[in-house]
Design a protein around this nucleic acid. Structure first.
Length: 198
DNA sequence: ATACTGATGGCCT
DNA sequence: GGCCATCAGTATA
């Protein structure tokens, strides 16, 4: 297993995670995706669950040192996977918004129902659903080589920063990071800039 | 193709 | 009681 390290700064982690392989081994088998879309929720960000700076029962994992899973439920139906950032005791994180499926496509399809391969982990809720990630994964050290873990992947050629999706506060900040052109990018609006689909 | 809506848990004032 | 870091389904074009 490859040694794997992350920077500490939230925005740096959000960029560094693009191209990284996320692996989950469960009783169903092994699934993995290549991360193509992330969002940073830095210290002081009004859109962050840790905005107040005080850990709660839900958000305590955001205060762990970089590389731990913070899993929560959005809108009562979808799980969201985040990666803690900044030093221990500081609340911040990076939302994993989408991945390109690599292995275990059959398992993902069993969990998600019939869907085009590129759509299986397209969106933060779908990614968790496809990979079997739920509250039980909260607090896991993703750098420790366990069942839910990061593995080194191919560094993307280019990274693009865009506004974040689905939030109302600080919506103008360019804290969503994508690998341009990936078919597994989320968002109903797909911009097409001079022939390049982002 | 886009637009709207219901389901639903947990945290907020 | 209101507000979401969402998704799948339905309706309309």
């Amino acid at each position: 297993m490859e040694p794997f390290n992350l920077p500490v700064d939230t925005v740096s982690i959000a960029k560094a995670l693009l191209g990284v392989v996320l692996v989950h081994e469960t009783a169903d088998g092994l699934t993995s995706v290549r991360i193509v879309e992330t969002e940073a929720y830095p210290v002081g960000d009004p859109a962050s669950h840790a905005f107040r700076g005080v850990p709660t029962a839900r958000t305590r994992s955001m205060y762990l040192r970089p590389g731990h899973a913070y899993v929560y439920r959005a809108y009562g139906t979808a799980w969201m996977l985040n990666v803690s950032s900044e030093d221990a005791g500081v609340g911040a994180g990076v939302l994993i918004r989408a991945g390109a499926p690599l292995t275990g496509l059959d398992i993902m399809q069993r969990r998600r129902g019939q869907a085009p391969p590129a759509d299986l982990a397209r969106g933060p809720g779908r990614l968790c659903r496809a990979m079997g990630i739920d509250l039980g994964c909260d607090g896991v050290d993703l750098l420790a080589g366990g069942h839910l873990r990061f593995e080194a992947g191919e560094t993307p050629q280019t990274i693009l920063a865009t506004p974040r999706i689905g939030i109302t506060k600080a919506a103008d900040r360019l804290l969503r990071f994508i690998v341009p052109g990936e078919p597994s990018l989320s968002g109903t609006r797909r911009l097409n800039l001079s022939g390049l689909t982002v």
